[in-house]
Computed example of a mutant assay.
Amino acid sequence: MKIGLLFGSFNPVHIGHLIIANYMANHTELEKVWLVVTPQNPFKKYGNLINTYDRLEMARLATDNADHIEVSDVEIKLPQPSYTIDTLTHLSEKYPQHEFTLIMGSDNLASLHKWKNYKQILKNYKIYVYPRPGYENADLASDPAVTITMTPLMELSATFIRQSIAQKKNVQYFVPDEVLKFIEDKNLYR
């Protein structure tokens, strides 16, 4: 099976993530997309990153009714910090029957040369890239492993959602209803 891996902190998961995952599962050769919840991105500071298991649960709530999108906790079980090449290698060894493709924004493609063993990623895995504002022409965009997709451009960010919640603004329609209820019930991002 051809599986796309969309890594993220999902702090919180929002409709932008789901639109990207849905697009990739329905408008590319991918058969499924796994949202890989990352405990801690090696390039980011902790900031207001909430509990990993709350983020995992929100991702699961958001994808309960999606037959082509699943949630993976693989990085929670691997040594920290999480490096994409280590996760890809682990998944390829654990599931040799699957072909894994990395899904990333054009902002991440622009900084891919800073990633651990990025040349190994380009050599062994396909990468599907979705557009992000201000990152149209990454140097690695012409690499044979890279496919630039026509995914709808999303300017919605988890940072905006967290800030809106902290300011007691309504975030309905930015996150799935089940995720919003979870955030409210647990009083997250206040």
Score class of each variant (00 low, 15 high):
44 K>Y: 04
19 I>A: 10
158 A>G: 15
45 K>S: 14
41 N>V: 01
10 F>A: 08
5 L>H: 07
141 A>T: 00
66 A>M: 14
45 K>I: 08
142 S>M: 13
48 N>E: 08
85 I>E: 00
189 Y>A: 10
56 L>R: 09
80 Q>K: 11
53 Y>V: 06
73 D>C: 04
126 K>M: 03
140 L>M: 10
181 K>F: 07
20 I>L: 14
59 A>Y: 11
16 G>F: 11
154 M>L: 13
32 K>A: 01
189 Y>P: 09
73 D>N: 11
95 Y>G: 09
13 V>S: 09
100 F>N: 04
179 V>R: 07
34 W>A: 04
151 T>C: 15
64 D>M: 15
97 Q>I: 11
20 I>H: 11
55 R>V: 08
160 F>C: 05
27 H>E: 06
45 K>H: 09
68 H>E: 04
154 M>Q: 15
45 K>R: 12
101 T>Q: 08
119 K>D: 06
145 A>F: 07
24 M>N: 03
170 N>G: 05
43 F>Q: 03
33 V>C: 09
155 E>Q: 13
23 Y>L: 11
169 K>R: 15
157 S>Q: 13
111 S>F: 04
138 A>F: 04
181 K>L: 12
104 M>V: 02
54 D>L: 13
94 K>A: 15
93 E>S: 12
71 V>G: 00
43 F>A: 01
69 I>T: 03
6 L>I: 06
186 K>A: 07
85 I>A: 00
37 V>W: 04
51 N>W: 06
188 L>M: 11
148 I>Q: 11
21 A>D: 03
134 G>T: 01
180 L>S: 00
